[in-house]
Simulated scan of single mutants.
Amino acid sequence: MHTTALVLFSGGQDSTTCLAHALARYERVETLGFDYGQRHRVELEARTQVLARLRERFPGWGRRLGEDHLLQLDVLAQIGGSSLTEDIAFAMQANGLPNTFVPGRNLLFLTLAGALAYRRGLQVIVTGVCETDYSGYPDCRDDTMKAMQLALSLGLDQRLVIETPLMWIDKAQTWQLAETLGGRALVDLIVEDTHTCYEGDRSHRHDWGWGCGRCPACELRAQGWKGYVEAGGEAGSGASSTA
Rank of each mutant, 00 (worst) to 15 (best):
M1G: 13
H2Q: 13
V7Q: 05
F9V: 06
G11C: 05
G12H: 07
T16R: 02
A20D: 09
L23W: 09
Y26T: 03
Y26H: 12
Y26W: 12
Y26V: 02
E27N: 14
V29Y: 08
E30F: 07
E30D: 14
T31D: 11
L32R: 03
L32G: 09
F34I: 03
Y36S: 05
G37D: 07
Q38N: 10
R39N: 01
R41V: 10
E43K: 01
E43T: 12
L44R: 14
E45H: 08
T48M: 00
A52F: 05
R55S: 02
F58N: 09
L65T: 02
E67F: 00
D68W: 03
L70K: 01
L71P: 02
Q72K: 10
L73N: 06
A77R: 15
Q78S: 13
G80I: 07
S82A: 12
S83N: 08
T85Y: 07
E86W: 05
E86S: 11
D87C: 00
I88G: 01
A89G: 08
A91H: 14
A91R: 15
M92N: 13
Q93H: 00
Q93S: 12
A94T: 13
G96R: 11
L97M: 11
N99Q: 10
V102M: 03
N106H: 03
L107Y: 03
F109Y: 12
F109T: 04
L110G: 04
A115C: 07
Q123M: 04
I125D: 01
I125Q: 02
V126P: 06
V126F: 04
V126D: 08
V129G: 00
C130K: 05
C130G: 07
E131I: 03
E131K: 06
D133P: 09
D133S: 13
G136H: 01
C140W: 04
D142T: 07
D142N: 13
T144Y: 09
T144K: 00
L150R: 10
A151M: 08
L152D: 11
S153C: 10
G155L: 07
R159S: 14
T164Q: 11
L166Q: 09
L166A: 07
K171A: 07
A172D: 12
A172K: 08
Q173F: 01
Q173T: 01
Q173Y: 00
Q176A: 15
E179Y: 01
T180H: 13
T180D: 15
L181A: 07
G183V: 06
R184N: 13
L186G: 11
D188Y: 02
L189M: 10
D193W: 11
T194V: 04
T194L: 09
Y198W: 06
D201L: 08
R202P: 00
S203D: 14
S203Y: 00
R205Q: 13
D207C: 02
W208F: 13
G211P: 08
A222E: 15
Q223V: 00
G224H: 06
K226R: 15
G227P: 05
Y228K: 04
G232T: 08
G232V: 05
G233L: 13
A235Y: 08
G238I: 09
G238N: 10
S240N: 12
S240R: 15
S240L: 15
T242Q: 14
